[in-house]
Nucleic acid binder design. Structure first.
Length: 194
DNA sequence: GAAAAGATTACCT
DNA sequence: GGTAATCTTTTCC
């Protein structure tokens, strides 16, 4: 398992992210995402993600590498943070050019904030553009904790993605069925067996 | 250079 | 359910 001895605690390693993007997306549900601060560590349990894959017209990587999406082509486990309107959103890179958008989480400390929605999740965790390009498998301050996964495959809902204008029908949004922290619009999807 | 679009959210009716 | 806010990146002339 994770053998790295860093001060921030155990974290998922490269091999976790170096798998097919849909597999990683589903496997991230129920896991704990952490962001170390100077004096604090904030944590959320991931309840909703979206996959962005090769030949996907809705993906930021669809038209090739630009300055903005540079980190989306980096190693598996790299954090890709981009700005949209007034907020930032975070992705975890799987295979270079593919990524999983972190759309919503449940606070680990109840009543401590609202991580429902990709912008809110980043605000809750304190993720900023300074975190773009950091390696979550190594010493980056943002990472996913191994070993704790509270999402049964039988409760994973598959549905179309949110807020895009192209490839709108692809079923690449994954969420924990019935979880109150899943963002709006509420998924009207299909149960998928593992 | 200028203009349009955007992986969103808050607040309106 | 619809729309404005708001600003960076990308695209077009």
């Amino acid at each position: 398992m994770g053998s790295s001895s860093n001060s921030g605690g155990r974290r998922l390693g490269r091999a976790f992210y170096d798998r097919p993007t849909r597999t990683v997306a589903r496997d991230l549900l129920g896991r704990v995402l952490k962001a170390r601060g100077p004096d604090t560590v904030r944590a959320a349990r991931i309840v909703e993600v979206e996959a962005y894959v090769a030949n996907d017209a809705a993906s930021h990587a669809f038209r090739g590498l630009t300055e903005r999406n540079r980190s989306m082509f980096a190693r598996p486990g790299t954090l890709y943070v981009y700005r949209i309107h007034q907020v930032v959103c975070a992705n975890l890179v799987t295979r270079p050019g593919d990524a999983v958008l972190l759309r919503a989480g449940a606070p680990v400390d109840e009543g401590s904030g609202n991580p429902s929605g990709p912008g809110r999740l980043c605000r809750y965790l304190g993720i900023t553009q300074d975190d773009d390009g950091t390696d979550t498998t190594r010493r980056g301050r943002v990472y996913v904790v191994p070993g704790v996964r509270r999402a049964l495959d039988s409760r994973i809902l598959t549905s179309p993605r949110v807020g895009i204008t192209r490839a709108v029908d692809r079923p690449l949004r994954f969420s924990v069925e019935g979880d109150p922290w899943v963002s709006r619009p509420r998924p009207r999807g299909v149960f998928t067996s593992a």
